[in-house]
Amino acid sequence: MKTFTAIIERDRDTGYYVGYVPEFPGAHSQGETIEELRDNLVEVLTMLMEDEDLPNEVEFIGTQQIVVA
């Protein structure tokens, strides 16, 4: 079992939730609800983890707010 961090945004035009996993290139999806998005991301991650040739070289550190005057 592995734990990944997903970044989730909401598209203002469609209302859909869009998410991606910075630690895993190619791991992104969308859903009408956060629960649907989570299920879709689990499915994508499961498929990507089966491909042993994919690099997993990025380590997610965190988020930070940047203030611009």
Rank of each mutant, 00 (worst) to 15 (best):
1 M>E: 12
2 K>P: 15
3 T>Y: 08
4 F>A: 12
4 F>R: 02
4 F>K: 03
5 T>P: 01
5 T>S: 05
5 T>A: 01
6 A>W: 04
6 A>H: 01
6 A>D: 07
7 I>H: 14
8 I>H: 01
10 R>I: 14
10 R>G: 04
11 D>R: 13
11 D>V: 02
12 R>Q: 13
13 D>S: 14
14 T>W: 01
14 T>H: 00
14 T>L: 00
14 T>M: 08
15 G>Q: 15
15 G>Y: 12
16 Y>F: 08
18 V>N: 01
18 V>L: 06
18 V>M: 04
19 G>F: 07
20 Y>A: 08
20 Y>E: 02
22 P>D: 11
23 E>H: 01
23 E>R: 00
24 F>W: 02
24 F>C: 07
24 F>M: 03
25 P>K: 06
25 P>S: 09
25 P>E: 05
25 P>Y: 06
26 G>C: 05
27 A>L: 04
28 H>N: 12
29 S>H: 01
29 S>L: 00
29 S>V: 00
29 S>A: 02
29 S>F: 02
30 Q>G: 00
32 E>N: 12
32 E>F: 01
32 E>P: 06
34 I>S: 08
34 I>Y: 10
34 I>A: 06
34 I>G: 00
35 E>N: 12
35 E>L: 02
36 E>P: 01
36 E>K: 08
37 L>E: 01
37 L>D: 00
39 D>P: 01
40 N>W: 03
40 N>E: 03
40 N>Q: 10
41 L>E: 02
41 L>K: 07
42 V>D: 11
42 V>Y: 11
42 V>P: 02
43 E>S: 09
43 E>C: 05
44 V>L: 11
44 V>K: 04
44 V>C: 11
44 V>N: 09
44 V>F: 10
45 L>Y: 08
45 L>Q: 12
47 M>A: 12
49 M>Y: 07
49 M>C: 01
49 M>D: 13
51 D>E: 15
51 D>H: 14
51 D>L: 12
51 D>W: 09
52 E>I: 15
53 D>F: 04
53 D>E: 11
54 L>C: 02
54 L>T: 05
55 P>W: 05
55 P>F: 03
56 N>M: 13
57 E>C: 02
57 E>G: 03
57 E>Q: 12
58 V>K: 15
59 E>M: 11
60 F>Y: 15
61 I>P: 05
61 I>R: 10
61 I>W: 08
62 G>R: 11
63 T>Q: 13
64 Q>G: 10
64 Q>W: 03
65 Q>C: 05
65 Q>H: 10
66 I>G: 05
66 I>H: 09
67 V>S: 11
67 V>I: 09
67 V>T: 15
69 A>F: 14
